[in-house]
Amino acid sequence: MAPDFRATDRAFSAGLDRRPSLIGLDRDGIARALLDAGERSDKVKMRASQLFHWIYHRGARSFDEMTSISKAWRADLDDRFVIGRPEVTNYQESSDGTRKWLMRFGDGHEAETVHIPEEDRGALCVSSQVGCTLTCAFCHTGTQKLVRNLTAGEIIAQLMVARDTIGEWPTPKDGNRYISNIVMMGMGEPLLNYENVARALKIAMDGDGIAISKRRITLSTSGVVPMIERCGRELEVNLAISLHAVNDELRDVLVPINRKHPLRELMDACRTYPAANNARRITWEYVMLDGINDSPAEARELVRLIRGIPSKVNLIPFNPWPGAPYACSKPEAIRKFAEIVNDAGYSSPVRTPRGQDIMAACGQLKTASERERRQKTGVAG
């Protein structure tokens, strides 16, 4: 069956519908919106809980679907609010089952979301910004300038659109889900949009709604050191670090935020990350670049760097993109690197590239919409 991408979402995403959206609001936010719309204060708490359940547990896409509330109130809600999704302007499925959505938001800007399936589960890779500010040298997304942060509603809506497509409403009770994990590894740097990311993830974790456990959510950062402790304390999600180099000289080139927060500061923040323990290890993401960062000496230095931190190392074969300045490490170099890290007692799986035929693999996400917008408006960039 073809995915249900509705015409009503196109009107919402085009900015033609001026009614405020309830997507992205928690119960308190929904209650405030109802009060502002003239709802009686003695009914607000109950009605906010009803709406939260219908929106995030049952996945309602219109107020008419909310059959447990009166027709009169449904009509009133429809006059005042929307619960529309972003418009899906491009949807692709890879030969390996990976799915990629390009979603357009109310101001016309777009971001990408990817679902990576396994046999009985799957991870949804969610974007936090349109574009990215960090310009990591090996990352295709980093070649697109930052346009803006995504709102909490635009972040959580990516998960909701994916569940619409896959057909995972209402929230499964037995935990057997095709979207079982969230990884904040899409377009953008999540810790540079922390407030919106945190609001969205708290909605995703709510047991009466989407109900994805904090243990199944991973936030990836390139090293925004001042926000790491707060993230662990407030969200308690798993932490992944885009490391990619074991000395400041190389990391300054590959991951430019290192010039502001060098390795010593980053490692100190990870050693004290509140949510890390032996059962919930910090993941170190390390893209393998031929002749750049893949020597045995660098593998040994990586082991030295992470010593004393509950850790797992994900080795990521570089995924090429048009004009990329690097090549993927040779299989034998990756094997030797992994062997050194494994022999030191750290799990070091080599990530199998997924979705390469639809440019959905790690580091490949980049929408062409911003270039097209500039061409249409005559703005240079």
Score class of each variant (00 low, 15 high):
51 L>W: 09
194 Y>I: 04
120 D>E: 05
169 W>A: 12
53 H>R: 09
261 H>D: 00
357 D>R: 10
156 I>K: 02
85 R>S: 04
6 R>D: 09
123 A>I: 05
231 C>W: 00
169 W>V: 12
381 G>W: 15
197 V>Y: 07
257 I>C: 02
6 R>W: 14
86 P>M: 02
16 L>E: 15
358 I>Q: 11
49 S>W: 00
273 Y>H: 05
341 V>W: 05
271 R>W: 01
233 R>D: 06
239 L>Y: 10
271 R>H: 02
10 R>S: 10
165 T>Q: 07
151 T>Q: 13
81 F>G: 01
306 I>E: 06
9 D>N: 10
10 R>I: 09
93 E>S: 10
31 A>S: 08
9 D>Y: 14
206 D>G: 00
188 G>D: 14
255 V>Y: 13
304 R>K: 05
90 N>T: 15
130 V>H: 09
7 A>V: 14
266 L>M: 03
141 T>P: 04
280 R>L: 08
333 A>R: 12
144 Q>R: 13
140 H>L: 14
111 A>M: 05
216 R>P: 03
28 D>K: 01
161 V>K: 07
50 Q>H: 15
73 W>N: 07
18 R>H: 13
328 C>D: 12
43 K>N: 02
24 G>N: 04
192 L>E: 13
87 E>W: 13
217 I>H: 09
365 L>T: 02
269 A>P: 04
310 P>D: 04
106 G>R: 15
321 W>D: 07
182 I>H: 12
355 G>F: 10
378 G>E: 07
12 F>H: 12
78 D>G: 04
315 L>V: 10
81 F>P: 01
116 I>T: 02
213 S>E: 03
301 E>W: 08
10 R>Q: 11
225 V>E: 08
293 N>G: 06
330 K>C: 03
316 I>L: 15
359 M>W: 13
353 P>V: 08
86 P>W: 03
369 S>W: 14
217 I>G: 06
70 S>G: 11
46 M>W: 14
125 C>L: 06
289 L>K: 07
250 L>G: 06
8 T>E: 15
25 L>P: 03
240 A>R: 05
21 S>M: 15
175 G>A: 03
161 V>H: 09
14 A>P: 04
17 D>F: 12
374 R>V: 02
178 Y>C: 04
239 L>E: 07
352 T>V: 14
10 R>E: 11
193 N>P: 05
130 V>R: 07
180 S>I: 02
204 A>Q: 10
